[in-house]
Design a binder for these strands. Structure first.
Lengths: 246, 246
DNA sequence: TCACAGGGTTGATGTGAGTCAACCACCCTT
DNA sequence: AAGGGTGGTTGACTCACATCAACCCTGTGA
């Protein structure tokens, strides 16, 4: 802690231009000549230990964050203590967009494992976005995609049954791991059953039962947090073709 | 229909600078001197008849829309026909943000009554946002608020019981009517029970029963789509203090 | 004036997921 | 190697909401 020194300026220069995540991240689609100018965008990097918050509800909004390593969950709390997990974020994804509207963050973001983020000063981002067209557009895209993602979650929560939700969740995780160069069929979940349940609007017992049921059906194999997808097509059918009751 | 003539350029000039909605809309917070420059932003106005779409899933994204009169619902459809209403929009609110990310719209937007929107060319908006700082910031705010709103809906769908959801919905509607100069306690819903249900992740019968129950409790009075809130505090208590089960 | 249609209400019954509770399997620490 | 704590699984039972179905408004048009 202490007063953090200018955060390893060495590793920082050429933050974006050298980052292997850039095609998933904010700089995507920006010309080579412009991309070096982005390096000044990343004011610092910040490490966040497992279970520690990147920011909390009510914190003043100053920056957005790009995940360099690790993963996070975001959640909203009701006064009576109920938690709703609003998303899980992986490398290259952007955090903090919830704060722009009011100047205060409106959710909590917690590291699911020891993680590291690039701190992107928001005033600086606005400034650069006015000059670099590609950055402006990419930033808008990121926000728009977040809105579309949220609509997908609403669909999930509002219109799907428990096993459909979990199947959709697994497919989504698989796709995102794939985009990051990991196996589409075998991965390690960083979140607990309870967190998955909160995200999907289910209780942890229901999540656990659904996992077991999928395993019985030969769709997946589960060992704690290790998931192996045996029948991806079967999972996809579950999501869409199961005659919906709700 | 036909090839639409330059859409009543008379009524259009000074679209924003004269609009009584501007404090709810995109131009909010922009200096008087800049606001006249916004008038060129609104390429046209468009009338949409009740039940007609403003745009549909898959339509190419070209513009965003500010609601001038009337109201809309947005929804997402699953292949098997299930519908999820993702929101209800009123005057001054912005539609179309879902299209920026992919270049295609990802939901349907349908007028709940005969309505009128300002068509804001997106390329033009990006261009102007690079010049008018206030516009850039306000646009980002609008998108951010949309994300925060969506998180609220997730909370609702994921963690609240039927009557809590409906109470939250009524409170939200009341606030938005108030912001538009209408009565906080008496208003006319433009959507059906089924649409409310879809939005809240409930069946229309459940919505209807909850309305009836609220009426029995003396919280509201309902006559078809006319709602009168008799005990706003009671409604608020319902949302937060009911010991949550889910 | 009547009749029809779409939207809304209400009741009886069913069921998917929640609740409660016991138990298990991993760490992690000592 | 033992012990404790956290996270996960499974079973028995309950309940909130869905489903099915009948009926009732209200507005519209012939």
């Amino acid at each position: 802690m202490k007063a953090p020194a200018p955060a390893t300026p060495t590793g920082l220069k050429k933050a974006c231009s050298q980052c292997n995540l850039f095609e998933l991240c904010l700089p995507f689609g920006i010309s080579d000549s412009d991309i070096v100018r982005l390096d000044e965008l990343v004011a610092a990097q910040r490490k966040v230990k497992r279970q520690q918050p990147l920011y909390r509800t009510g914190d003043p909004f100053e920056a957005i964050y790009a995940i360099r390593t690790g993963s996070f969950k975001s959640d909203v709390l009701l006064e009576d203590g109920r938690e709703q997990v609003t998303g899980f974020q992986m490398t290259g994804e952007i955090l903090g967009l919830d704060g722009i509207g009011t100047g205060l963050h409106s959710c909590n973001v917690i590291a699911l494992e020891d993680s590291e983020v690039c701190v992107i000063s928001y005033p600086k981002l606005e400034e650069l976005a006015r000059v670099i067209e590609g950055l402006q557009h990419q930033f808008h895209k990121v926000m728009s995609c977040e809105i579309v993602r949220d609509h997908g979650v609403m669909m999930l929560l509002g219109s799907m049954r428990a096993e459909e939700r979990l199947a959709a969740f697994l497919i989504n995780m698989s796709q995102r791991f794939t985009a990051r160069g990991f196996s589409p069929t075998e991965f390690h979940l960083r979140m607990t059953r309870e967190e998955i349940g909160s995200y999907l609007g289910l209780k942890l017992e229901t999540v656990s039962r659904a996992f077991s049921h999928f395993q019985e059906e030969g769709l997946i194999s589960v060992q704690q947090k290790h998931i192996r997808i045996l029948d991806g097509e079967g999972l996809k059918k579950l999501v869409q073709h199961q005659a919906g009751t709700r």
